[in-house]
Amino acid sequence: MFLGIDDNTGLVYESASSAPDRPVLPIPTVSRAKIIDAASDWNLLGSGFRVDAHAWLFREDSFDAVTRTRRGRLYQSMMGAPYPDHQSRVMPLPFEQLARDDIGTDGKLNRPLNVYAAATTLLGRDNRGLGATLALGTSIAASAWRIVGVEITASGDVMLTLKALSPYGILPKLEVAKIDGRFRAEVAQSLQRVVDSAFKESASAVVDQCRDAAALIASRWIWQHSGDEEILRKDLAKVAETLAADPWKKFAASNIAKTIAILHSRGKSNEQFAKGLRTPTEEDAEFAVHAVGFLLRELDWVLSPF
């Protein structure tokens, strides 16, 4: 199938031919899309449909808020230029108010369409794009999604299943009142750095931010309960040991903190070489973000949902 978007109104048309003429109702949600291979790619999203000649579009067909998944079709620019075809002939919409002279003998009218075809170039990527990060939106605001399913429909469309990668909803909301005023700002800032890096920087960089946040959270929590200034100077592994010791016995929090520390060391090239360790992956980074959220919940620094 081919997709056409009216350059003036944003109305959407489709057809099995390369001249989309059938209005799509209800009007679907259509977003700019771009594969993110490096952090710098986030700066190349553009701000609209006419920014470049090779833009991809994602047409959403369904969204599940519980599983945080979207299904929809991916299109690529067919025209090789960002400017619309002003001679596109389309069928009028039922609610359009038109003069009799606007409609030709074929029952259609001219509309300036940007035309897109199924984005089959995605299939040329490794694993046909499975596992890649897809950004939806523009340079003003965009979200990150993991491609977890790729299909070709009977009509030749490239159908994607996407899983949300947003850290919002993964990190719980911090209850600032439970944190000593001396440390409130730096704890909040450390969590913001986790959010800013999550799924936009390299896996190792995300793990680094999670390690820093975990060390800050755990050490400041211990200080609030003991007044031990020395704990504020220790690294995460040592802080984790203290969490498991008397009188805290926060074993789950301790073990999750130790795991984050181990993941961080795996991001160092010398550690990888010396111990034969694998490089942290995107899935490891996602785990590290979840782990910081778990640590916050175990130490009871989050707002109650009730």
Rank of each mutant, 00 (worst) to 15 (best):
P28E: 07
D64W: 02
W56H: 11
S31D: 05
W42H: 10
L74Q: 04
L44D: 09
D37L: 15
A55R: 05
P82S: 11
R71I: 04
G80E: 10
V24F: 10
R32P: 05
S31G: 02
Y75N: 05
R22V: 12
L44Q: 08
G46C: 11
W56I: 07
T29D: 11
L74W: 01
W42R: 09
D61R: 15
D85N: 12
G46H: 05
G72F: 01
T67S: 15
M79K: 06
P84E: 02
P84M: 01
R70K: 14
W56F: 13
G46D: 02
R68P: 01
D61M: 11
S77I: 04
P28S: 12
D21W: 02
M79H: 09
F58T: 04
D64K: 05
L45M: 15
P26A: 07
V24Y: 09
A81Y: 06
R22W: 00
D85C: 01
F58P: 07
P28Q: 11
V51P: 00
P82Q: 02
D41R: 10
T67V: 06
E60K: 14
V30A: 11
T69D: 04
T29P: 00
T69G: 03
D52Q: 11
Q76G: 11
N43C: 03
P84A: 08
R50H: 11
Q76K: 09
T67I: 03
P28R: 07
L57W: 03
R50T: 13
